[in-house]
Design a binder for these strands. Structure first.
Lengths: 334, 334
DNA sequence: CTGTTAGCGCGTTCAA
DNA sequence: TTGAACGCGCTAACAG
């Protein structure tokens, strides 16, 4: 394994030129079936593996894709990122591509810059935490294919998005059909596109049901822990019977607050989340939520990236993946 | 940014040879301060960045380190892996190295093999989930520096380990000093080195306190969810006053079971974990546990790897990082 | 202190 | 169908 023989050695051993060997391996160019077979058998026998760097230098690419690693994160996003990474990895490995990691924070993209400027990758996949930041601005100024996973403020950027609007709409509709009368919604940062997407779905569910949403039960821009606590207090005071959370992070805090307030879920109040994660599954009771197929998202991102690099056609500017509504105990009518 | 000029262009523009430019940049070899300054200023002006692949080809290395990504995981390990990754990334980025990801599962290391055989990396860092498996066996057969993060069954492998024994010893001692009389311990896979390390610390704490451990309260090889449930039931039946969990995964399940059994923590029974993670922090009440500085572990692993690659001296075969005992509400005497 | 020459290992013209 | 020669961009050995 990991032998140190070169294409030259192979050529000499077989008494042919390296050109022929190269062609036999790559499949490009015409080689007789006989010699091709001879080459393929020999390289397997001696376990010859082409040197990726030399190949890259000659072809001016390196078969590496950069994936950004969120440097500042909350525990909830981890499973999202990990699943995405696994999806991307699975797809790329098949095609003999590899993943290079670039840690990126909101105000530090030096790692990404270095990797890109050093030409260590053929393309960049941006994960959702950074798509609003400096990263895209930087990539826009240079000649390097890239795409974004998640909602993205630019409409000239290739992106893989989730059906956040539709998911929120459907889940909310289901809750309304259960006859909850005072549904409240706790939102995080309203500047995030994903937030407004889900909020729109939420509101439209009311419209479709010909009901009106009591806007005093909408808690926007609730980012701090204490903010969430206050929102929950207020909602309870207003007699909410169902608290919907924008994401799993908020949901965890809401559950915590309900516990200290001695409110039982689902007996005293129902709870649902527009984004589910393993951390919510472990909760007792399990939480009704929307689930997104993260590995599929990763795969799709990887496939799209390779199409950008190798495909002849334009790739669609925006692709969207579905969701599942997962009904659990937290919204059960007791 | 990301200009496409080469070292040749720089040399010509400055009327000197590329060798001199190369030397001015790398710092290797003697160059007059004057020309060095001239070069450095010029490359900054035109934003020249050396092509990493060409450099790699010439130097027979590529300034990439492979980090294995656990393909099969439980949600708990995620924060561990992520923190490690951030630590490694931070250290390596400083030294102009990058991280290549290889997804590895217990019985599939083909991705790792490809990356290594293609010579896409200079070294490999194994993360804990795979250190018992095929990966090490493979790496032992070839000529590629590698190290393992976590306890490792081989004593000829460079490893970065945590002070699992000492941590378990100290935490258990503290619990004993609180006069809990019937401490039970729920363990996972006993084949894992980390498990036996912690178990030894646990037992030795009893010895040091001149107390004897009731072995009927030791639940070994509890791997399934139902197994954990049974262990908790049995422990409660035996009148346990404190349940110690081998890790955060087990702890989550134990807490869940206690909840369905209507046992309040810490009122009815105390709970502690030999491994803490964000998921336990969010619990109400917060759980007493051991915390390990994961980013430091990552940094240390990265530093050690670079020493293996560039250092002149041998690196220590085994380095160990400390821990913190975090006392929370779950073991408070009410 | 600097330049010349020769590779690193592979792909790719262009002839044959 | 094959091969010789050159180039990818850089570093290293050897002169000067």
């Amino acid at each position: 394994m990991g032998s140190n023989i070169t294409i030259d050695d192979v050529a000499k051993a077989l008494g042919i030129s390296k050109t022929t060997v190269s062609r036999a391996i790559s499949g490009r160019g015409r080689v007789s079936e006989k010699t091709k077979k001879r080459v393929l058998e020999y390289i397997k026998e001696v376990d010859y593996v082409p040197n990726a760097m030399a190949k890259g230098l000659a072809q001016r690419r390196n078969f590496n894709i950069c994936v950004t690693l969120p440097g500042d994160y909350n525990a909830m996003e981890l499973s999202f990122f990990h699943s995405i990474l696994v999806g991307i990895s699975d797809y790329l490995a098949d095609k003999e591509y590899d993943i290079l990691i670039a840690k990126v924070t909101e105000n530090d993209i030096s790692g990404l810059k270095r990797i890109v400027n050093n030409k260590k990758v053929d393309g960049v996949i941006l994960t959702r935490t950074v798509i609003d930041g400096e990263a895209i601005k930087f990539l826009k100024t240079i000649d390097m294919p890239y795409l974004a996973i998640g909602s993205c403020p630019y409409d000239d950027v290739v992106q893989i998005d989730s059906m956040n609007y539709e998911g929120a709409l459907e889940l909310t509709s289901i809750l309304l059909s259960k006859n909850f009368k005072k549904i409240s919604l706790v939102c995080g940062n309203m500047l995030h596109y994903v937030t407004s997407d889900r909020l729109n779905g939420f509101k439209d569910a009311f419209k479709q049901a010909n009901m009106k949403f009591d806007s005093s039960l909408l808690y926007a821009d609730v980012v701090s822990e204490s903010g969430i606590d206050k929102a929950v207090e207020d909602a309870l005071r207003n007699g909410t019977d169902c608290i919907v959370c924008m994401d799993d992070y908020i949901c965890t805090r809401v559950l915590r607050k309900l516990k200290t307030e001695k409110k039982k879920v689902p007996r005293d109040v129902k709870v649902a989340s527009f984004y589910g994660s393993p951390i919510l599954e472990f909760n007792v009771p399990a939480i009704t939520c929307l689930e997104y197929p993260e590995d599929e998202i990763g795969m799709l991102a990887a496939r799209t990236m390779l199409e950008m690099l190798e495909g002849e056609e334009e790739v669609p500017l925006k692709q969207r993946v579905g969701y599942n509504v997962v009904l659990k105990e937290s919204t059960k009518i007791v």
